[in-house]
Design a protein around this nucleic acid. Structure first.
Length: 853
RNA sequence: GCCCUCGUGGUGAAAUUGGUAGACACAAAGGACUUAAAAUCCUUGCCGCUUGCGGAGUGCCAGUUCGAGUCUGGCCGAGGGCACCA
């Protein structure tokens, strides 16, 4: 028998789909319902990796299924092609980022095509192309006009040697990753999107996203961080110019326990200490901790005592010292807190260090009024004590409400809702990003680049090995004249998260050169029905995208969308065992060998043992990567698709194994063998065993499997579909030795091939063609009449334990089954009918007898 | 510390949503075919006595129920997210 040659077949169908533009999408095609299926687009790093294979296979199964269930499907692909790796690679090898990126794109596109994806390549976009970022610059200016973009000074990680800003992940132990210099906090003018304006909306409309994983919604909710509290004004003594300090608190009910007030070193009152040498060195000490919240968190709590005293607004006799403290953040609340050591662990630690009083004002329910906090803060709910008018109230619920009432009446405080979400800083001091379409005149005023001059193109072939931002050195590019006025361009570029915040809109109108997108088209295609990607984008990318549709919709009559992604699916990672040699060097799977599957050795030194580590997410640094292109070359795209879906549910991590890969390859070969046999039977070239006709069984089986697979696609239970495909093989390979009416065999077998086609499209289409099925393929619908069996196994339980099972006609009554049961040897031997106290019957499932002896 | 998710054979996992636990596969062992190997196919799969049967059994302990992998409470363990957020 002829072996299945995937190389020929897969190439044949890939070029067929290409040539026939099978997956080209248009609006209102035949008045079908639309379905927008989108996977997160890749960064063109050079080669596709297994994570891409998994992501795009999951999406492809869905897209192909939707096409066959008669949806008008949009399934595009593009490139998230701005970013640091291109700039770094270019610097290292003295290349041009553009050339490097374009080469990678063409390579990866070829690799993706080899996977046989149902992509509409007509809509391909690349964020680094001026054709894309031109529109992004337009959007930026639109948002600027609406007041959603602004410029302000902000702290950044500054590398004083490289004269550049570092991303948080480029700061290692407080030092620059390249220069090793101590990173400083430096104030720079930065551009911001006013995302916090939409905090409440972003939080509220999460509720409308029913098809999002709860996990992601929770993460976003926590990130936005809405809190209910109160702002309080504290009267200050000790400096004529500082009359009061405002604090934000969620626990105004613990005000009587206050023993200090702490403000950030960046608080406005710090200007009175600018000439204080001790304060300057304290502030410097604080700045060394970097700007990440985590870095601040790990630092020891430090305070700088001022000569100021703050008055407790509820009891004017209590006056407490004011400190600058490193754990108070300027960009949350008012950059000032009151310290209540007894009921906040940070305040407790601070109080211990600086020997401040710890006054207990909440006691646990079961404790006496004389209760005192001991070695750590008490933060649970309880009863208020030592607090005059608040005493006896339930904390925190009753007491907070009452405390706010009092503060409002006294006009020293008011209820306030706060958000953790900060505005989105979008300035990057980098070359390889979208230029910000702004210039500054000689007075430093902001001048928009006129629309007719868009795009502001990146200068090409420039020197990247400079100190600071390379664009800063581009004199010709930098100096321009706008309306006769000499200006200097903004040399910062946009955060690449901006590029990916609206690309799904661009796909709707990718060839429109005048507009970012045409509302007629976004109206039709948006929202994305199913978005698929890694959970690592659960917060930033998804939040920014959600912000973008709200910002574009803001004050816009033509465009109105509340959410970009109706359904979200987050797939798990692809893992592989890790290997290390005797010197703890990571080894690639290709560098090791084994004879017994237990003991592993180095290939180039068979005496050296290899240590096998646990399966971890594939990464270049651990060398536990498997190259998809090699696997496709060796086993074929269908086999790779089959394997990547087979072992685990798509939302969980999957472990790559060569055995599993091989098994998938063999399975396709087996299916091919089966196909040859069935084809021969259909064509009348093979004799079957005459005495048994299994046509009816086949009808039932195939309709049941249609039902199962359809459900499993809808549920994303793709691993179970693979199991269903094995069931199909196991059933058919046994049953086709018996007689099946030819037309019944053909009809059912064709349906079965269609069921296979989303997973292994090349194979299925080849088989269908060999049976002369060339017309448009529709997903089969299970016929109701075949879904019911004539006979069902009824489980017989005695006192809830399974004892035996009886075959009965479907839909038998309780009495019929019971009558059958009491006739059995088993029953007669063990029980008597008058012992039966109660019968529970679940139709077509089980009969449970309660017997008390 | 807080929040979320998850604990099922040697392994990856199924389980119609409260109704036959372990579908389907990987690995292993035994067998068939073969001079042999590869490939392929079959059987086994935790404990007990002989097939057959019986028993335990879905991290642990309770509970609800005729019946719990599934629901409730508590504990243990793993993973993920957030965090001096006032």
């Amino acid at each position: 028998m002829e072996r299945y040659n995937f190389k020929i077949v897969e190439k044949k169908w890939q070029s067929f789909w290409d040539k026939n533009k099978t997956f080209k999408s248009e609006i209102n095609k035949e008045n079908k319902k639309k379905f927008y299926c989108l996977e997160m687009f890749p960064y063109p790093s050079g080669n596709i990796h297994m994570g891409h294979v998994r992501n795009y296979t999951i999406g492809d199964v869905l897209a192909r299924y939707k096409i066959m269930t008669d949806y008008n499907v949009l399934h595009p692909m593009g490139w998230d092609s701005f970013g640091m790796p291109a700039e770094n690679a270019a610097k290292q090898n003295n290349l041009d980022p553009k050339d490097w990126t374009e080469k990678n794109i063409s390579n990866m596109k070829k690799q993706l095509k080899n996977l046989g994806l149902s992509i509409d390549w007509n809509r391909e976009i690349s964020t680094c192309s001026p054709a894309y970022y031109k529109h992004q610059q337009k959007l930026f200016l639109d948002l600027y006009d609406k007041g959603l973009v602004y410029r302000k000074e902000n702290y950044v990680n500054w590398d004083p040697v490289d004269q550049t800003v570092l991303a948080n992940e480029q700061v290692i132990d407080g030092k620059g990753w390249r220069s090793g210099a101590q990173v400083e906090r430096k104030k720079l003018n930065q551009w911001f999107f006013n995302i916090s304006k939409f905090s409440d909306e972003l939080l509220e409309s999460l509720n409308s996203l029913e098809s999002w994983p709860n996990k992601v919604k929770t993460m976003q909710k926590n990130w936005i961080g809405k809190s209910y509290g109160c702002e309080i004004k504290f009267q200050i003594k000790g400096n004529e110019d500082v009359k009061q300090i405002k604090c934000y608190t969620t626990r105004p009910d613990t005000l009587y326990g206050m023993s200090f007030l702490a403000v950030s070193v960046d608080h406005p009152i710090s200007k009175f200490y600018e000439n204080n040498k001790e304060f300057i060195s304290f502030k410097e000490e604080c700045s060394k901790t970097g700007t990440t919240e985590e870095a601040i968190a790990q630092a020891e709590k430090l305070g700088f005592k001022t000569n100021l005293l703050a008055t407790n607004p509820l009891n004017h006799e209590i006056k407490v010292p004011v400190y600058f403290a490193n754990f108070v953040l300027m960009d949350y609340g008012f950059g000032a807190v009151f310290g209540c050591p007894a009921h906040d662990q940070r305040d407790f630690d601070f109080a211990i260090k600086y020997n401040l009083p710890i006054k207990t004002v909440v006691k646990p329910f079961e404790e006496k009024d004389t209760y005192q906090v001991d070695d750590k803060a008490f933060t649970d709910s309880g009863i208020i004590i030592n607090s005059n008018e608040l005493n006896g109230l339930n904390a925190p619920n009753e007491s907070i409400e009452r405390a706010i009432d009092i503060l409002e009446k006294e006009k020293v405080g008011k209820k306030k809702i706060n958000f953790r979400l900060k505005d989105w800083g979008i300035s990057r001091q980098r070359y390889w990003g979208c230029p910000i379409p702004i210039a500054y005149n000689k007075d430093g005023e902001i001048i928009k680049i006129p629309e007719k001059d868009l795009p502001v193109k990146l200068p090409e072939k420039i020197q990247l090995n400079t100190t600071g931002n390379p664009l800063d050195h581009q004199k010709e590019w930098k100096h321009i004249t706008i309306n006769g006025e000499k200006c200097i361009r903004e040399t910062d570029t946009l955060d690449t998260f901006v590029d990916s915040s609206w690309y799904y809109l661009r796909f709707c109108s990718s060839s429109n050169s005048n507009l970012p997108f045409d509302e007629k088209e976004t109206d039709y295609w948006m929202p994305v029905d199913q978005y698929i990607g890694g959970v690592e984008h659960a917060i930033l990318h998804l939040l920014y995208s959600r912000f973008f549709v709200k910002a574009i919709s803001f004050q816009n009559k033509k465009f109105n969308l509340s959410e970009p992604f109706n359904g979200l699916f987050t797939q798990g990672m692809v893992c592989h065992e890790t290997y290390t040699d005797e010197n703890n060097n990571w080894l690639h799977p290709d560098e090791i060998t084994t004879e017994d599957g237990k003991n592993y050795f180095k290939k180039n030194n068979p005496k050296e043992r290899v240590l096998v580590g646990p399966a971890e997410s594939m990464s270049k640094s651990k060398k536990n990567t498997i190259e998809p292109s090699k696997m496709i070359d060796k086993y074929g795209a269908d086999a790779v698709r089959l394997f990547i879906l087979s072992d685990s549910p798509p939302e969980k991590d999957v472990q790559w194994s060569e055995e599993g890969m091989l098994a998938s390859y063999k399975f396709i070969q087996k299916l091919w063998g089966l196909h040859q046999k069935i084809k021969s039977i259909i064509e009348g070239n093979i004799n079957t065993i005459e005495e048994k006709d299994v046509s009816e069984e086949l009808n039932k089986f195939s309709n049941q499997v249609i039902f199962k697979i359809t459900n499993n696609i809808e549920k994303f239970s793709y691993n179970v579909i693979i199991a269903n495909l094995h069931e199909i093989y196991n059933f058919l390979s046994k049953q086709i030795t018996f007689q099946i009416k030819k037309e019944i065999l053909k009809k059912n077998y064709v349906n079965i091939l269609i069921l296979m086609s989303p997973i292994i499209p090349h194979f299925a289409q080849e088989c269908l063609e060999s049976l002369n099925i060339k017309k448009k393929i529709n997903w089969p619908v299970a016929e109701e009449q075949y879904l019911k069996e004539d006979n069902v196994e009824i489980v017989i339980q005695i006192n809830g334990k399974k004892r035996l099972s009886l075959k009965n006609k479907i839909d038998s009554s309780e009495k019929e089954i019971y009558d059958n049961l009491i006739k059995t040897e088993y029953f007669k031997k063990n029980y008597k009918t008058d012992e039966v106290k109660k019968i529970i019957y679940v139709k077509n499932r089980l009969l449970n007898l309660i017997i008390k002896k």
